[in-house]
Amino acid sequence: MTERIPVLKIGDVLLVSIQTDLEDQSVMNLQEDLAARIVETGAHGVVIDITALEIVDSFVGRMLATTAAISRMLDAETVLVGMRPAVAITLVELGLSLGGVRTALSLEKGLALLAGADPVRADRA
């Protein structure tokens, strides 16, 4: 049994902090858990913190993108925070630009982005 990544709720936002390197199965579990929690809590924002993540392969990269897309379908803006330079370079080399996923340098900035996200979304629409 692979360990589950906790999904924490802070006010209107769900926080997913990934602390270990991801296995394929745990990413798939995370996707299911997160979708269920968004519906359950009616959260309007999701922050995925990958500060501790040192290794990302193409599968995990793609799953992060689909997770963000799923959250958006459920009306929760997703922000990916704390990506390490090495991880960013790897993803670019893999040809994954995670289009449509919002990113921020740190958890704090990610939360600030979500707090001020509504006007931006209004702009886009």
Binding site: M83, R84, I89, V92, T103
Partner: peptide
Amino acid sequence: LKTVVAARLMGA
């Protein structure tokens, strides 16, 4: 372009 995309991935 790669550099710009990588920076964007990190949130900058």
